[in-house]
Design a protein around this nucleic acid. Structure first.
Lengths: 87, 87, 87, 87
DNA sequence: CGCTTAATATAGCCAC
DNA sequence: GTGGCTATATTAAGCG
């Protein structure tokens, strides 16, 4: 009895399960991404600057210590090139 | 009644609401991303090639849109340059 | 006299010229991109912080006025949420 | 001999050299980008569909890498899920 | 001019 | 631990 094209030894059914689980999760993930976009649109409609909000949220995620360190290096370099250091 | 530092005319409370909504959604989104990673880890443990699965899932998403962009003009141009038309 | 598949009225030769011009330009553009990457690698090897240099170069491109305005809005928002404003 | 404000131990001169090299390269890169835009404008003026040309050029770049990723494992998996195998 | 899509930059991950 | 690679997030461009 030889194998046919429909036979397999790679676990098609199992593979399919994995793929479908991933695709379902990706769907939810993408939906949340769309929700986020909507909030930004709404916030913009209420007069807020979306870009600034985005930046602020990114900063909130960062470790304050690391943030300070990064900004210190940047300032050092900027002064080295004679650039005005803001605020 | 003088203004205090907590008073403002930029809508601090509203801004805070928006920020918190976004952060909650991002949390869920990130959690789904972690779930996906776990599935890949599991699938790898079962002997599947994670990279190939990733590629396959990407192809499953891309094909429909690719077909959409295969307009008559595109095919015309491709034939004009002697390119193989995918069909 | 009917048209054959090799005949065309869309200007195949002209189209080909355009495509080749674009591809040549894209090649040069990509080569410059690679050069830039190399400079960053070299600078990193010399002990500089590549990320900070990148940020600084981006700032140098921006209009100082606009830069000040953006940072003012960001600070306003950060204070509104009680975040520490750096430097 | 005391240090002046222009003295430093971070290698200001070297940093400046790096920054200027990068900025020069970015300038060339951007100029090539502008050239490309011009070709598209010209081609559009000659009656060609710019979007289709853009797509075609993208396809010409993608195909080689796509073929590379069409490994035996990928095909095996795709067949396992009943997907059409492109090549 | 806003909205959608492509290019770019950043960050996380894996293999070596 | 580092360097390459993948994936994500940000930015810019093109289109209607």
């Amino acid at each position: 009895m030889t194998a046919t094209v429909t036979d397999d030894n790679i676990g098609s059914a199992e593979l399919r399960q994995f793929v479908e689980r991933i695709e379902r999760l990706e769907e939810v993930k993408a939906a949340r991404g769309d929700d986020i976009k909507e909030v930004y649109a709404e916030l913009k409609g209420r007069g807020f600057d979306a870009k600034a909000v985005r930046t602020m949220i990114a900063l909130r995620k960062k470790d304050p210590e690391r943030r300070a360190e990064e900004s210190a290096i940047l300032e050092l370099y900027m002064r080295a090139l004679g650039m005005a250091v803001p605020s």
